[in-house]
Simulated scan of single mutants.
Amino acid sequence: MSTAADLVFRTATERDIAALVELVESAYRGEASRAGWTTEADLLDGRRTDEEAIAETLARPDTRVLLAERDGDGELLACCTVERRPAGAYFGMFSVRPAQQGGGVGRAVLAEAERFAREEWGAGELEMTVIVQRADLIAWYERRGFIRTGELSPFPYGDQRFGVPKRPDLAFERLVKAL
């Protein structure tokens, strides 16, 4: 397992699309995702993302996809998106390879996203949305300084780009952190 000290960060390019799709899918969907604690396999079937969605994300001028690779061999271990917003920045597509979860890689990626948003864009806050049923994940973010806002938005039922829900009560909650 890698540690935060073993990581090198860089911005993703079009050459990284296939590897990003594989990483995101492995962290959230299907049986392979159950090796880590961030799986959504009990809540959603289907895909989390695809090559077209990643390409669209990379093409947005106010969005960066940050990659965390193992220093030395360049293995892709984690990623996230940071999107510039009027009030700060949005944090999303946070994925850590299941075998690397629980060892500090995720904390290091979140810290890098916060640093990037603050230093590169002057963002004063970082926001995200999390499925409200993910109490363990929300608690992890709260331990890192995020605050639950109570602002809910509906899950996009019927739009399979977000997955195929296994239950009828999914919703997102907005979390924020002052930078």
Rank of each mutant, 00 (worst) to 15 (best):
D62I: 09
E75Y: 00
D71L: 11
F94I: 06
R64Q: 10
E56W: 14
L67F: 04
G92L: 04
L77M: 05
R84E: 11
D45P: 06
A89T: 07
T81Y: 03
T57E: 15
T49C: 09
E52H: 15
E52P: 14
R70I: 08
R85A: 13
G88M: 09
G46W: 10
L77G: 01
I54S: 06
R70M: 04
E40Q: 15
S95D: 02
A68W: 00
L43T: 08
A59E: 12
L77H: 01
T81G: 07
E40K: 12
I54D: 07
E69L: 13
L67H: 01
G72K: 02
L58A: 09
R60H: 12
G46Q: 10
R70Y: 06
S95L: 01
S95I: 03
V82E: 00
T81L: 05
R48W: 10
E52C: 14
D62C: 10
G74C: 03
G92F: 02
A68Q: 00
R48N: 13
T39V: 04
R48I: 12
E75Q: 07
L66A: 06
I54F: 09
R60F: 11
L76W: 08
A68N: 04
R85E: 14
P61K: 02
A87G: 08
A55N: 08
L58D: 10
V82L: 00
R84F: 04
A59H: 11
L58W: 08
G74K: 03
D42R: 14
R60Q: 15
A78T: 00
S95Q: 04
Y90R: 13
C80Q: 07
T39M: 01
D42E: 15
E56R: 15
E69M: 03
C80L: 10
T81M: 09
F94E: 05
A41V: 07
D45T: 14
D73T: 03
E52F: 13
L67P: 05
P86S: 01
G88P: 01
D42A: 15
E83Y: 02
E40V: 08
R84P: 06
A53K: 14
A68H: 03
R60S: 11
C79T: 13
T63Q: 05
E40Y: 15
R70W: 02
D50V: 12
G72F: 01
C79A: 08
T49N: 10
R85C: 11
R60W: 09
D50W: 09
R64D: 05
G88C: 07
E83G: 06
T39R: 04
I54E: 06
L43K: 08
F94R: 03
F91C: 02
R48H: 10
Y90G: 08
G92D: 01
